[in-house]
């Protein structure tokens, strides 16, 4: 009987005390994967947000529901409308930084399941034709052992379609915003597969939206190859 077995938090490994109530006896309950303190450390994005990138808006630094960063992107004809809309689950606070580092750099794959239910709520194969992970270069993929964006899609219960591949380049996290925007294109259509992209609606998935440069570069390749709309979904913003 595993109904009230003690479990450990997937992130901090503390014991999760099973709460036994009449409801939990008779009704199916959503499985708790992380403990309450960890759950409270996750800051869900809410309130007024930028309609393009999902960043919480500060009145001072925004215009017409757009943050200034997105405004700058949209002002450039080259980038206008490339990325339709980004959605994110949580603010990239110190806690989430640690969790994502453990997931991505230490390679603790199981952590992807912490976000699975929430991400699945925003993925849908009715709305999107393809759900596409931001690819890693061959070298980086070997080093990490898995692609974190693909892990997020698969754990959410959706098929990950590799429409894109990436050329090996320096790590993004070591670059400034300016460097990132004026990046040479590192993505290309996956030469090993051919998918009917023409006129399709695509959801790009990644772990973090920082400047939006990665996602926009990937979206640009897809748009250039005929995609109708490209949206994106990340865990952190």
């Amino acid at each position: 009987m595993t109904l009230f077995r003690e479990k450990n938090c997937l992130v901090c490994h503390a014991k999760i005390e099973p709460v036994v109530t009449w409801t939990s006896v008779f009704l199916y309950q959503k499985e708790t994967l992380i403990c309450d303190p960890c759950n409270n450390n996750l800051e869900r994005i809410s309130g007024e947000i930028c309609r393009a990138c999902y960043r919480p808006l500060d009145k001072q630094y925004s215009r017409n529901d757009l943050c200034l960063d997105c405004l700058r992107w949209e002002e450039e004809p080259e980038w206008q409308g490339v990325l339709m809309q980004n959605q994110s689950l949580y603010l990239y606070n110190d806690y989430l930084k640690e969790v994502i580092a453990k997931f991505k750099y230490r390679g603790d794959y199981l952590i992807a399941s912490v976000f699975a239910t929430e991400l699945a709520g925003k993925m849908s194969l009715g709305l999107f034709d393809w759900i596409v992970p931001i690819p890693l270069s061959q070298e980086r993929l070997y080093e990490r052992g898995f692609n974190q964006a693909e892990a997020l899609i698969v754990q959410a219960g959706f098929p990950a379609t590799h429409l894109l591949t990436r050329l090996h380049a320096e790590k993004q996290s070591k670059k400034s915003r300016k460097d990132r925007i004026h990046l040479p294109q590192v993505f290309q259509l996956n030469p090993n597969e051919s998918y009917p992209i023409e006129g399709s609606k695509i959801l790009l998935v990644d772990d973090i939206y920082t400047t939006g440069s990665t996602l926009r570069h990937a979206a640009k390749v897809l748009k250039a190859n005929g995609a109708r709309e490209v949206h994106s979904l990340t865990v952190a913003r």
Partner: peptide, 8 residues
């Protein structure tokens, strides 16, 4: 223990 699809 947990498992993952390993690219190595």
């Amino acid at each position: 223990f947990a498992s993952y699809p390993c690219s190595r």
